[in-house]
């Protein structure tokens, strides 16, 4: 919520105080705060799909678990653009040899009774089918002057590298679920993304939280309490 409000600290404080006290924010602040909560969560009388909620919580889990890596150069915070016409996230980082690498992340959540492999297969397919589009859009945000020359030069190589599955690019799939994890949840990944067969090109991150659904709903309950 702090990231959502940014410098609107007094609004954030208002929201926080009321949430902790379990009281409702009076108008007109209530309407303003509601605007900040509405994306992804929806509002108490007009909730958004729980899939979006689960997905968003999963994205934040991924982000919090991966961003504090010293090698990461660029990795935007998840906005929660959950209806999705783009990738769920990407990361530009340095490998141990100091070379730049690009990884496209696809985030999946599994909260129902469906099998984990179905969710994961969807993620692989999405990367295979739509990866080139996600890459093109990401490249479009690296306009001249937006980053240092090395990063821009690297990003100029990414579309072709992605097409060919060359070493500088890779894919990651993150899975958040309430189900227990098998020993090798991502074992089919290499088969589904055959071009990405060089060392380090594939990553998987699975988070199993037995009360995942409740966790997500708790997050939402906090968001809504003061409204």
């Amino acid at each position: 919520m702090q990231v959502r409000f940014g410098p609107a600290t007094s609004l954030y404080d208002t929201w926080r105080e009321h949430t902790l006290a379990g009281t409702k924010i009076p108008s007109p602040d209530r309407e303003t705060v509601a605007s900040f909560i509405e994306p992804v969560f929806g509002l108490p009388d007009e909730p958004k799909s729980e899939d979006h909620l689960h997905g968003h919580v999963g994205e934040w889990l991924w982000h919090l678990l991966t961003k504090d890596n010293a090698a990461v150069r660029v990795q935007p915070d998840p906005k929660g653009d959950v209806t999705d016409a783009g990738a769920d996230g990407f990361s530009i980082y340095e490998n141990p040899e100091g070379a730049l690498r690009f990884r496209l992340w696809e985030s999946k959540k599994n909260t129902g009774s469906g099998s984990l492999s179905t969710s994961l297969n969807q993620a692989y397919t999405q990367i295979a089918i739509s990866g080139q589009r996600y890459v093109a859009k990401i490249v479009g945000t690296f306009t001249a002057g937006s980053q240092d020359a090395a990063t821009l030069a690297f990003m100029a190589d990414v579309p072709a590298a992605w097409t060919q599955g060359d070493e500088p690019v890779g894919a990651g799939v993150t899975l958040a679920t309430h189900q227990p994890l098998p020993g090798k949840p991502f074992k089919k990944m290499s088969r589904k993304l055959p071009l990405l067969n060089k060392p380090g090109q594939l990553r998987g991150l699975a988070t199993s939280i037995s009360c995942y659904d409740e966790l997500a709903k708790t997050v939402r309950r906090y968001a809504w309490t003061a409204l």
Binding site: V139, A144, A156, D157, P159, A160
Partner: peptide, 15 residues
């Protein structure tokens, strides 16, 4: 999308 991608790369680099 590949072509759109390479076309979208920053001026002065690979393409």
């Amino acid at each position: 999308w590949y072509l759109h991608g390479i076309a979208s790369t920053a001026e002065g680099f690979r393409y």
